[in-house]
Amino acid sequence: MHKMKIEIWSDVMCPFCYIGKRRFEKSLEHSPYKDMVEIEWKSFQLNPYLQTDPSLNIDEYLAQHKGIDLAQAKALNAQVTQMAAQEGLVYNFDKSIVANSFRAHVLTHYAKAFGKQNDVEEFLFRSYFTEGKNIDDLEVLKDIADKVGLSADDFEKTLQEGRLDDEVKMDIHEARQLGIQGVPFFVYNRRFGVSGAQPIEVFEKTLEKAVTEWKANNSTFEIEQSEEAPSCGPEGCD
């Protein structure tokens, strides 16, 4: 059966992207349209020039990045941790490692051909936010590949040869063309966009609208949001 595509622009280091992933999944859980959609994860880099620094945790990075003191950074991250907990997610910012996400995006692209993107995304988010693993570290990425049943060695080769680098860059370029300035950003059938970690109802309504129209075959692009929802942009998260 031909399926309607939902594309999700996301970055592993974006705390609202993991929260958005959960809310989006919950919106699909009991949906009558669940089997009508296919999901594709797209790459976005909040800070493409970030140097991976295992000695720096997220609280310290946020303080530096936003020019605030450590106590304020911890307070902001505590709020996000609480929001994540409501979705059943555990965030350990004090042990999360600041890392450039480009290689993690290469793994997501590698997984695409095998239908394992969603599994890889889940492991990447968990590694970063919960387990305090360095998602720029080759061994960590190979371990994730292995866990989802992909060839860790073939992935390593792909990474070293830069085979999928252009695909990651293409996603980032495409986001710019669509006017996407922050993530998560969910695009339904290239027709409707949901910006940020919106409430579950927004995802549900957008899915219904998109599927109904997909069946009827229309196409212009508009952004759906009930309120300003939290998302992350190049200037930081808000």
Score class of each variant (00 low, 15 high):
Met4Asn: 05
Ile8Asn: 14
Ile8Trp: 12
Met13Asp: 04
Pro15Phe: 11
Cys17His: 04
Gly20Phe: 02
Phe24Ala: 00
Lys26Trp: 08
Ser27Asp: 01
Ser31His: 05
Tyr33Met: 03
Lys34Cys: 02
Ile39Lys: 04
Glu40Thr: 12
Trp41Glu: 01
Ser43Lys: 13
Leu46Ser: 02
Leu46His: 09
Thr52Phe: 15
Thr52Gln: 04
Asp53Lys: 12
Asp53His: 03
Pro54Val: 06
Ser55Gln: 15
Leu56Ser: 12
Leu56Ile: 13
Glu60Cys: 09
Leu62Ala: 09
Leu62Gln: 00
Ala63Arg: 05
Ala63Tyr: 09
Lys66Gly: 05
Ile68Trp: 09
Leu70Gln: 03
Leu70Gly: 03
Ala73Asn: 11
Lys74Ser: 09
Leu76Lys: 13
Asn77His: 15
Val80Gln: 11
Gln82Trp: 03
Val90Phe: 15
Lys95Leu: 06
Lys95Gln: 06
Ser96Glu: 02
Ser96Gly: 12
Val98Ala: 14
Val106Trp: 02
Val106Ala: 10
Leu107Gln: 12
Thr108Trp: 06
Thr108Asp: 02
His109Pro: 00
His109Cys: 15
Tyr110Asp: 05
Lys112Ala: 13
Ala113His: 09
Gly115Met: 10
Asp119Ile: 05
Glu122Cys: 14
Phe123Arg: 13
Leu124Asn: 06
Phe129Glu: 09
Lys133Gln: 10
Asn134Glu: 12
Ile135Ser: 09
Leu138Val: 14
Leu138Phe: 09
Glu139Ala: 06
Glu139Thr: 00
Glu139Cys: 04
Leu141Ser: 10
Lys142Ser: 05
Lys147Trp: 03
Gly149Tyr: 07
Leu150Asp: 09
Glu161Asp: 07
Gly162Arg: 14
Arg163Gly: 01
Asp166Lys: 10
Val168Gly: 07
Val168His: 01
Lys169Cys: 03
Met170Gln: 07
Ile172His: 06
His173Ile: 05
Glu174Gln: 12
Gly179Tyr: 01
Ile180Phe: 15
Val183Gly: 04
Val183Tyr: 10
Pro184Gln: 05
Phe185Asn: 03
Asn189Glu: 05
Asn189Gln: 09
Arg190Leu: 12
Arg190Gly: 12
Gly193Lys: 01
Ser195Asp: 10
Gly196His: 07
Glu201Trp: 05
Glu204Trp: 00
Lys205Val: 04
Lys205Leu: 04
Lys205Pro: 00
Leu207Lys: 08
Glu208Gln: 11
Ala210Ser: 13
Glu213Ala: 09
Trp214Pro: 01
Asn218Cys: 08
Thr220Cys: 03
Phe221Cys: 07
Glu228Pro: 12
Ala229Tyr: 03
Glu235Leu: 10
